[in-house]
Design a protein around this nucleic acid. Structure first.
Lengths: 217, 217
DNA sequence: GCCCGCTACCGTACGGTGTATCCACAGATA
DNA sequence: TATCTGTGGATACACCGTACGGTAGCGGGC
């Protein structure tokens, strides 16, 4: 079975899922495929091109959700699929927003969201659409990144409060006890129970409401 | 003149501004300071701790904006300062949202935004506040990242349309000419003239409107 | 006064990375 | 059969983060 861009991307994704983006190296991918490291350069010109390839594979999965009933359902579907994909492939969140995503499937996702948003009330011309797409994508990127990093730190420290206080505590609790950050302290102490998915959807609808309810120029 | 965390962070920031985050290495920092690479480990335990240090220095500048007239002016000030900082230090955008920002100045910024938002109409309890802070930060992170990556690609390809078509063109224009991405094509062709700062502020107010105008539970 | 132990500094070395270059070998062609 | 071509692989380079061992200075116990 000869090598191919698809096979390379697939094993790279598997390794990145397991070891994270830092643990991913061309040598490991090549070893996993049973070839020398330099063979990969016959299919990919850079490591970053390989990363682009991986990203577009994930976008392919996101693009599968396709069109839903209305523009709002479509946008919600794409956003949730993006979040799901990032939770499955945390390295995807690391790459999100870091470089232009121009693969065919990424463009398909972009087209689907833009087309859906162009049908939203309050989006009248191209400038409105540009802004709406920008706002939505910015929120998705930021929210997904934040959730992934929070999950990472929660995993490394342990979820329960005791372990949390013990690991981040020595520094963070000392900081919070200075009294200089009362609101943050309240958020950390009282606000940990919120469901992540609900919060994501809630804020997403907030954004969409803000876009559609825009006051007339 | 002895070494110090501040001096190390300052030269690291200078180098990162010049060469980007990929071009930053402990060896270069040490050479710039006229010491051996291992000297840095007397002041910093990791490279990532050094990155945290650099990030917090930038947050110090952001924290300087302080409180403004009302909650909305304060939030706008912080968001704009964050954007300005990221445009001055593009590596800051790369780090944004990638790891928990727990430095004292980052906490100060978080406290200021949370305190401001807690005074916003429509934010009634801690859960509301948590969601509002999450939405706002997500947008800021995503928007700043997107703007920085766009600026980078614009810089590498050249701003004028001819150079753009020539560099990204061979692939992107071919893609757009397939007709599969009509909305994206319209955005790329017609929508390039928008002012970045205006767009940022516009979307920011959109988000804030969405937060405050939240319909009652 | 002398020696010991301790601390603060420093250079070297290791295992890893992405990638350029050279080399051997197989197959096809003259 | 001899040469050419092109493909797969190994080696090599520059660089990275960082573990480790040594060395010099200095304060304290006898």
């Amino acid at each position: 079975m000869p090598l191919s861009r698809e096979k390379i991307a697939a094993t790279a994704i598997r390794l990145a899922d397991a070891d994270g983006l830092d643990g991913l190296s061309l040598r490991k991918i090549a070893k996993e495929l049973g070839v020398g490291p330099m063979r990969l350069y016959d299919y990919v010109m850079n490591k970053s091109e390989l990363l682009d390839l991986m990203v577009d594979v994930v976008y392919a999965r996101i693009a599968e959700v396709g069109q839903r009933g209305g523009w709002r359902a479509t946008v919600l579907g794409i956003a949730q699929a993006t979040r799901d994909a990032a939770l499955d492939h945390e390295w995807f969140a690391d790459l999100l927003g870091g470089r232009p995503h121009l693969g065919p499937h990424a463009l398909a996702v972009g087209e689907a969201t833009a087309a859906a948003l162009s049908a939203a009330p309050g989006v009248r011309d191209i400038d409105d659409l540009q802004r709406a797409v920008g706002a939505l994508n910015a929120f998705i990127i930021g929210a997904v990144r934040k959730e992934v990093t929070e999950r990472r730190t929660a995993r490394s420290t342990g979820t329960d409060e005791a372990a949390f206080q013990a690991s981040l505590g020595p520094y963070l609790t000392r900081m919070l006890k200075t009294g200089r950050y009362p609101t943050v302290a309240r958020l950390v102490i009282d606000g940990a129970h919120l469901n992540a998915e609900e919060t994501f959807n809630h804020n997403l609808t907030t954004i969409l409401d803000g876009i559609t309810r825009r006051s007339p120029t």
